[in-house]
C-alpha cells in the first residue's frame, strides 16, 4: 500500500474528513480527521480493554486482569514511585492514562488502517497521531499544565498556611509566589539582583523540558516511520525498474529491503513501548521536580 503512495510519508499526514476542516486567515482548524479519529479509536479500545477487567476483583489475578495489573504496577513501580515518591498514588491515574494513550497512539501507527477504511466505504481513520507535532505538543502541554497548576496550588497552600493570608488572596498571587519559588535562594544583594533573571531562566527551563518532551516523542515516531517509508520506496523503485526496464540490478536489493523492513518494524514496536515509557517517566519526573512540596 505504501508502494502505491506518491508521497512516502503520506501515511503520516492527517486526512481531514470532508467538510470538517476550516481555514481562516491562514489558520487551519480541523474538527475531525483520520488522526483525531485514530485517537478516539485508541481511547475506545483502551477503555474497552481495561474497564471490564477493573470491575472483577480476584485474589489471584488471571488472564487480561493480569495484564492490566502488570501495567498499573509497572507504571507505579517504574515511573510513579521513583519520580514522585510519597505522591505516587496521587498521580498514578494520570500517568497510567498517559502511558496507555501514548502507547496506543504509537502502536496504532503500525497498523495501516488509513488504507483499509476507505475500501470499506468509511471515512479515513488511522495513522500515527504521535507523528505530528500538534498531538505530542498537546500531550506535553498536559504535563506543563499539571506542573503549573500543582505548583500554583502548592504555592497558594504554603502562603495560606505560613502567613495566615486568606486563601483567595493566596490563590490570586500564587503565580508570583510559584515563579519566585522556582528561583534558587541566593542571600544578599546578589540574590536580589539575580532574582528576576533566575526566575525567567527557571521558567524557560520548565518550558524547555516540556518542549523536549514534545520533540522527543514526535522525532522518534517520525524517524522510524520515515526510515520505513524510505526503505519501502526503495523497494517500489526496484519493482518499477524490474517491470519497466527489465533491469535486474535493483531487483537484488528487494529481499534485503523486505528483511530489513520487517526487522525495523519489530524495532518500531519496541520504540513505541519505550517512547511511551520515556514520555510518561519524564512527565512524572518534571511533575515531581516542580510540583512536589519538597522542591
Amino acid at each position: 500500500m505504501l508502494l502505491a503512495a506518491e508521497n512516502p510519508l503520506e501515511h503520516l499526514s492527517d486526512k481531514p474528513w470532508p467538510g470538517l476542516q476550516w481555514h481562516w486567515q491562514g489558520l487551519t482548524v480541523t474538527a475531525m480527521s483520520s488522526l483525531i479519529a485514530a485517537m478516539i479509536l485508541v481511547a475506545i479500545i483502551a477503555a474497552t480493554l481495561i474497564l471490564p477487567f477493573a470491575r472483577r476483583y480476584q485474589r489471584v489475578p488471571r488472564g487480561g486482569r493480569n495484564v492490566v495489573e502488570v501495567l498499573v504496577v509497572g507504571v507505579r513501580d517504574l515511573i510513579a514511585k521513583p519520580a514522585l515518591h510519597e505522591q505516587a498514588y496521587v498521580f498514578l491515574p494520570l500517568l497510567c492514562t498517559m502511558f496507555v494513550f501514548v502507547l496506543g497512539m504509537n502502536l496504532l501507527g503500525m497498523i495501516p488502517l488509513g488504507r483499509i477504511t476507505p475500501l470499506l466505504g468509511l471515512p479515513p481513520i488511522g495513522g500515527t497521531p504521535t507523528g505530528i507535532l500538534a498531538v505530542t505538543g498537546a500531550m506535553a502541554f498536559i504535563t506543563f499544565m499539571t506542573i503549573v497548576v500543582l505548583g500554583l496550588h502548592h504555592a497558594a497552600r504554603l502562603c495560606h498556611e505560613h502567613h495566615r493570608v486568606p486563601m483567595a488572596l493566596c490563590a490570586a498571587i500564587s503565580p508570583l509566589l510559584w515563579l519566585k519559588s522556582l528561583a534558587p535562594t541566593i542571600p544578599g544583594l546578589t540574590g536580589k539582583i539575580l532574582l528576576l533573571p533566575m526566575i525567567a531562566l527557571e521558567f524557560v527551563g520548565v518550558l524547555a523540558k516540556c518542549g523536549a518532551l514534545m520533540i522527543r516523542l514526535f522525532a522518534n515516531m517520525l524517524a522510524g516511520h520515515t526510515l520505513l517509508a524510505v526503505l519501502l520506496m526503495l523497494l517500489g523503485q526496484a519493482l518499477v525498474s524490474l517491470m519497466q526496464h527489465q533491469s535486474y540490478s535493483l531487483a537484488y536489493v528487494g529481499p534485503g529491503i523486505i528483511i530489513f523492513s520487517v526487522a525495523l518494524n519489530l524495532l518500531e514496536l519496541l520504540v513505541a513501548v519505550i517512547q511511551a515509557y520515556i514520555f510518561t517517566f519524564l512527565s512524572a519526573m518534571f511533575i515531581g521536580l516542580y510540583a512536589a512540596p519538597s522542591h
Partner: peptide
C-alpha cells in the same frame, strides 16, 4: 507534519475524557 490547533485541542479533550473514564472506573 506539524498539525493544527484542532488536533491539539482534540488530543487534550480525548485525553482528559479517557483520564476521567479510566481514572474513575479503572
Amino acid at each position: 507534519p506539524v498539525g493544527d490547533l484542532g488536533q491539539a485541542v482534540a488530543t487534550i479533550v480525548i485525553f482528559l475524557l479517557l483520564l476521567a473514564v479510566l481514572g474513575k472506573w479503572a
